[in-house]
C-alpha cells in the first residue's frame, strides 16, 4: 500500500477571474492510487468539472499543488497530457469529421504515426461497439454512442489515467449499463479511472474510493461502504403522507429515531432496523400513505453531510 499516488492534490484551489472573481474549488486535498477507480460525487456546481479540468492540465491551477504521474501540472502540462485520456462533461467530438476520422486525427494530435493509428482505430471502434459506424457523421450517433466514441477517442494514446466528467449524465439506463460495463473492462486492464458523477448508483457501482464534494470543498472521503457506515445508518425508512395530514404525522414521528430528515416529498428515518421502526411508527398512530424500507445509500450520506439531495 506504499505505491506512490498517480494524482496528488494539496490545497488545490481554482478561482475564475471574471468581472467578480469566483472560487469554484476551495483548497482540496486528495490522492488517486494506481489501478483504482476514484470518484468525485457532488451536486451541480460543486466544483467537480473545475477540478477535473485542472487535472487534465487544460485549466491553470490558481494555488496549491497538483502532481500527476510524478510531474507538476503547472509546469509539465504537455508531458502529462500525453499520458492522460480525457472525457469532458460536454461532448466535444469533431462534427466536421466522421466517426473514424475523429479517432484518427485525435491520435495525430498525440503524434502517433498513421500506420499505428489505423490499427488502433479498428480496436477502439470494436471496443466501443461502433464497428459499423466508422464512416458515419458524428451527428447521426445516439447520445450513448457519442459518449462511447468520446471514450474511445480518449483511449487513443493508451493513457495510464482516464478522466471521465459525468460519463453517463443524460443517457438512458440501457446506454448507461453498456458504458459502465466498458469502464469495468478498462479497470480490469489496469487503467486508473477518475470520474465525477452526481448519480449515487454510479458512484457505488464503479468507485473503489470516492470523495464527496460540496460547494468547492471535500466533505468526506472513503469507500462507498465506508462512507455509508460512517455517515448513515444501516437501513432507512421512507414515509409518504397525504397532503392534508402531512404536518401532523411529521410531528408525531419526531424522536422515533435519532435522525429524521424532512424532504419535500417524503420523510426519511435513519435506523438500524427498518421493520421495527415501522412498527414503532404505527404504534404511535401514524398512518402513512406509503412506507418503504431500504438499505442506506450514498444519497443518504450526501443528505447527511450537506442537508440536500444530490439531484434537485
Amino acid at each position: 500500500m506504499t505505491t506512490a499516488p498517480l494524482i496528488e492534490a494539496r490545497d488545490l484551489t481554482k478561482t475564475y477571474v471574471t468581472s467578480e472573481p469566483y472560487t469554484a474549488v476551495k483548497g482540496i486535498d486528495f490522492e488517486v492510487r494506481p489501478g483504482e477507480a476514484f470518484g468525485v460525487l457532488g451536486a451541480n456546481g460543486a466544483g467537480k468539472s473545475s477540478t477535473m479540468r485542472m487535472i487534465a492540465c487544460v485549466s491553470p491551477v490558481t494555488s496549491g499543488t497538483l502532481r500527476i504521474l510524478g510531474m507538476d501540472a503547472a509546469r509539465d502540462g504537455e508531458r502529462i497530457r500525453a499520458r492522460l485520456g480525457v472525457v469532458p462533461q460536454d461532448d466535444t467530438l469533431d462534427t466536421e469529421l466522421t466517426v473514424r476520422e475523429n479517432l484518427l486525427i485525435y491520435g495525430r494530435y498525440f503524434g502517433i504515426p498513421w500506420k499505428a493509428l489505423r490499427e488502433r482505430c479498428d480496436q477502439l471502434l470494436a471496443f466501443s461497439r461502433l464497428e459499423d459506424k466508422g464512416s458515419q457523421a458524428v451527428s447521426t450517433l445516439s447520445g450513448g454512442m457519442r459518449r462511447r466514441l468520446t471514450i474511445a477517442r480518449a483511449l487513443i494514446n493508451q493513457p495510464e489515467i482516464l478522466l471521465l466528467d459525468e460519463p453517463t449524465t443524460g443517457l438512458d439506463p440501457q446506454a448507461r449499463h453498456l458504458l459502465w460495463e466498458r469502464l469495468f473492462q478498462l479497470k480490469e486492464d489496469g487503467v486508473t479511472l477518475l470520474l465525477t458523477t452526481h448519480y449515487m448508483d454510479e458512484a457505488e457501482q464503479l468507485c473503489d474510493r470516492l470523495v464527496v464534494m460540496d460547494a468547492g470543498k471535500i466533505v468526506a472521503e472513503g469507500s462507498p461502504a465506508d462512507l455509508i457506515e460512517r455517515h448513515s445508518t444501516r437501513e432507512v425508512l421512507e414515509l409518504r403522507f397525504a397532503a392534508h395530514e402531512r404536518q401532523l404525522m411529521i410531528d408525531k414521528c419526531a424522536g422515533v429515531t435519532e435522525r429524521v430528515e424532512v424532504l419535500p416529498d417524503r420523510l426519511v428515518l435513519y435506523t438500524g432496523d427498518g421493520e421495527s421502526t415501522l412498527a414503532a411508527v404505527h404504534a404511535l398512530g401514524v398512518r402513512p400513505a406509503g412506507a418503504f424500507v431500504r438499505r442506506s445509500t450514498l444519497e443518504d450520506v450526501f443528505l447527511t453531510l450537506t442537508g440536500r439531495s444530490l439531484v434537485e
Partner: peptide, 14 residues
Amino acid sequence: TEKTYQAILTTPMS
C-alpha cells in the same frame, strides 16, 4: 460553437 479547440487542447497540443 463546436468547442473543437477545447478538445484538441486536452492532447499534448498547445
